[in-house]
């Protein structure tokens, strides 16, 4: 039987609120298929989400869910996991939520290596509030608050997670469907902090303002520019600056927070 993830879809909440051409639905279906592949149940899974377009995904998921304040999903998820290590805790954040307002929580969750899976859908801007720039908006991009171009540099979410100590880091785009499925499934299975960054089109705001009029234009760009690590490393710096590095980037097995806490706890008792 085909894996559809359908039993995890909360159908009575449909139709969803996302724009035409948005990648969130694609990312959601990949996530739900992974739940099914890994035989998760609604009872043993908790989705924690923040504020933003991708942060609304919990409305369409039939597991436990906790929808919280902007940027703070990781601390809430940390509390859930710290006292109940048996739960699968999956944190859904956009680039604004995850690494802009929530940047501090992001690096500390990775440093603690708490066993959470963070799925950051990066559409390079704040979609919900009208397309303002975020910490992942590339320099010089036009957004509704960088009318003449973005003077700031962008974060590389994966490098940030790696430097902060995450056990698993991978990046895909919405175009690379099978890679996305595999990365999400591996990230969910990995003990410790794992991050999957999914580059996703926001044709309504970011695309329209940056000469990518349709979602198809944006997907074509992902197809053209998406390169794996081997290829990426052979590229010149100028080629690299246009490329999107995709694939599994970090895969370690450092002990997670709960394991370390239990080890230390043995000294107390």
């Amino acid at each position: 039987m085909a894996i559809t993830g359908e039993k995890f879809l909360k159908k009575d909440s449909l139709p969803h609120m996302w724009c035409q051409g948005c990648g969130n639905g694609v990312a959601l279906s990949s996530l739900l298929r992974s739940f099914e592949r890994l035989k998760y149940t609604p009872q043993d899974t908790v989705i924690v989400s923040g504020i933003g377009c991708w942060g609304k995904a919990d409305d369409y998921i039939a597991t436990n869910a906790l929808h919280v304040t902007h940027g703070r999903a990781l601390p809430f998820a940390t509390g859930v996991k710290a006292v109940n290590p048996d739960l699968h805790v999956v944190v859904l954040m956009g680039d604004g939520d995850g690494v802009t307002i929530g940047g501090n929580h992001f690096i500390h969750a990775a440093r603690r290596n708490i066993d959470l899976t963070a799925i950051v859908v990066n559409n390079y801007n704040y979609g919900m509030t009208g397309g303002q720039f975020s910490a992942t908006t590339p320099a010089d991009s036009i957004t509704s608050t960088t009318a003449y171009g973005n003077p700031e540099r962008d974060f590389d979410i994966c490098t940030l997670a790696e430097a902060a100590g995450a056990n698993f880091v991978g990046r895909s785009t919405i175009y690379h469907g099978r890679l996305m499925d595999n990365l999400i499934k591996e990230a969910l299975s990995k003990k410790g902090f794992s991050l999957v960054e999914i580059i996703s089109p926001c044709p309504t705001h970011f695309g329209r303002k940056n000469k990518m009029k349709t979602a198809v234009d944006m997907l074509n760009l992902y197809k053209q520019n998406g390169v794996t690590k081997d290829k990426y490393e052979k590229m010149s710096p100028s080629e690299q600056s246009n490329a999107i590095l995709i694939g599994k980037l970090v895969d370690k097995d450092a002990p997670d927070f709960n394991t370390r806490y239990e080890e230390i706890r043995q000294k107390a008792i």
Binding site: R72, P75, F76, G79
Partner: peptide
């Protein structure tokens, strides 16, 4: 984060 964690 502290209040987030205790709520979770």
């Amino acid at each position: 984060a502290s209040v987030g964690a205790i709520v979770g």
